[in-house]
Amino acid sequence: MYFLNELNFVRKDAGFKARKDAVDIISEMGRVQVINIPLWGSLLSRLTNGSKLFHFLLTLNRTDVFLFNFPMPKPFWQVLTLARKLKGFKIVPLIHDIDALRGGHGKDPIRILSCDKIISHNKNMSLYLKNKSSKKIDISEIHAFDYYLPYESAPRLINDQQREVIFAGNLDRAKCGFIYTLEDVDNIKLFGVNYAGGSQNYMGSFDSQFPDAIRQPGIVFGLIWDGDSIETCSGSFGEYLKFNNPHKTSLYLSMGLPVLIWKEAAIASFIIDNNLGFGVSNIKEAMNIVNTISLEQYQLINSNVEIISKKIRQGYYLSKVVDEVIDDFSIH
């Protein structure tokens, strides 16, 4: 099996963190050969590297499997499908986003369904794809994205002296307008980019490779919420939570933070089933949990989080699903 590393840069924000983690984790597995062909950049760069990609793909044969991050930058899907038509190798997308699920009108579902096997986020996304297909499709699920951090963090102090909610990520009003209605709530701390408010609770941004700034002491939860409303997750971004695994979930868990999440989100079942936090209907319910949970109950949840945190920081979930894909092709 081959895996395409299409990156040639590292960003401090989390925009490409999951893709970079995939490269690092798969490189360490030893079962997959990583091919480094950068696909982002100027038009000239894309033309040059598109040619390199095409020529590499022409060296593959019908028994080879090509794993790649999805979606691909333009115009490389066309390069991939032409080479596949000529050589007959197998293709497997590691799905990061499906634009059609967040209000877009692209061809993502059609492209995904044309692949030989699919790595989906969770059962909700898998069901969405199955309902789009008239034939049986082969899907494996990652269940949770890893947040690869090859270093040890200092233990987080758990006490009843500080009760807070952390909300980290893209703070643009269009994505999470609800935070701008909570600027007077003292025990919510905001971390991230594109903040347009004036709250003293905004703590700035951090390097996604070193996110320990959110590893706060006390009874602290990470919040998963999107949209304008504090009553429910609204709009296209809120709807998207019903299908995707938000990468910030993995960020929180990697930093040892239990999670408060909209109960209709696809990954809420992962949080609840593993006792890593709570599913909630609205922000009021979330804040009530923060303010009333006993130290003993929080410590129990936190002990479960620490177990999952170690797995996420080491690349457990991606390694497991890639091993599954390799074994499936070996059997067939």
Score class of each variant (00 low, 15 high):
K107P: 08
F76N: 02
N302T: 12
T48L: 04
P109N: 07
V165W: 09
L129F: 08
S303A: 15
S229E: 02
L101F: 13
D186I: 01
I179W: 04
A265Q: 02
H55L: 15
L82W: 11
S42E: 05
S234A: 13
I289P: 02
R156Q: 10
L57H: 04
V65P: 03
L4N: 06
L129V: 13
F278R: 02
S120L: 08
G218H: 05
D323L: 10
V23M: 15
I137D: 02
P75T: 03
G30S: 12
V32P: 09
L94V: 14
C233I: 11
I95T: 07
V220D: 05
K132D: 03
Q314I: 00
F243Y: 15
L39R: 02
G218S: 02
V305G: 04
Y195S: 13
I289L: 06
Q314N: 15
N5T: 11
R313D: 00
Q299K: 13
D212M: 00
D273P: 01
Q200P: 07
L101R: 07
L149F: 01
Y180C: 08
S27T: 13
G106K: 14
P73Q: 10
G88N: 09
S153I: 02
K107V: 08
D207M: 05
S199G: 13
C176N: 06
S140C: 10
N159V: 07
Q299T: 15
H143C: 13
F210A: 06
G106T: 14
S269V: 05
F178K: 06
N159C: 10
S208M: 09
R173K: 10
I331C: 02
H143V: 12
A266F: 11
V32S: 10
V259L: 05
L58K: 15
G103V: 12
